[in-house]
């Protein structure tokens, strides 16, 4: 990939990657630094001659890894909820939770996201903010698609619960 093409990639995806980092970290400044870092790392990878099939997925994967590094640095600990994720079961219809959202507007929902645990937060951000389908999220997080779908469902319910509680 040439420098020219790469800068076009930056122009196309910088906002999306920044947005992702911003919601994940709840820290705008850190998100800016990380965005720069992510693109530079991706450049270093492609400039070595390595081929990238799907640049969008690759960008998100690098972003996710860097965010995890950041969390480790900051000493965040995952909560008990993550243990639940180990066990998969049938994926419920996404539509069945739709009615939960009739009451709540998008802004409040987004504001509540940082209150979720990291594992729930990451799938909700990827699904709702980044618009990535569960299959792509599974590819980024290197987990079975089924687990991802379950987690999205649970995270959504958790988010709704938070919003309910606020509203009450």
């Amino acid at each position: 990939m040439t420098e020219h093409d790469f800068i076009k990639t930056y122009d196309e995806w910088a906002d999306a990657i920044f947005r992702h980092c911003s919601f994940r970290l709840s820290d705008r400044e850190a998100a800016k630094d990380l965005t720069q870092d992510i693109f530079i790392r991706v450049w270093e990878y492609v400039s070595r001659g390595e081929k990238v099939e799907n640049m969008k997925a690759f960008l998100y994967r690098v972003a996710h890894n860097r965010i995890v590094d950041e969390f480790r640095k900051r000493g965040r600990i995952d909560s008990l909820e993550t243990l639940e994720d180990e066990f998969g079961f049938d994926v419920p219809e996404e539509e069945s939770v739709a009615d939960l959202f009739d009451t709540f507007d998008a802004r409040h929902a987004l504001e509540a996201i940082p209150r979720l645990t990291p594992r729930y937060r990451e799938v909700l951000i990827m699904r709702f903010v980044d618009g990535l389908p569960p299959k792509e999220i599974a590819g980024i997080l290197k987990e079975p698609e089924n687990n991802i779908s379950v987690r999205i469902h649970r995270a959504t319910r958790k988010l709704a619960a938070l919003l309910h509680y606020d509203h009450a």
């Binding site: 920044f18 947005r19 965005t35 996404e94 929902a109 709702f128 618009g131």
Partner: peptide
């Protein structure tokens, strides 16, 4: 759900550089 997703994405898009 679809509408909700659209709304979320529209709202989220306000977070940008």
């Amino acid at each position: 759900m679809h509408d909700f997703l659209v709304n979320i994405q529209k709202e989220a898009a306000k977070t940008r550089l």
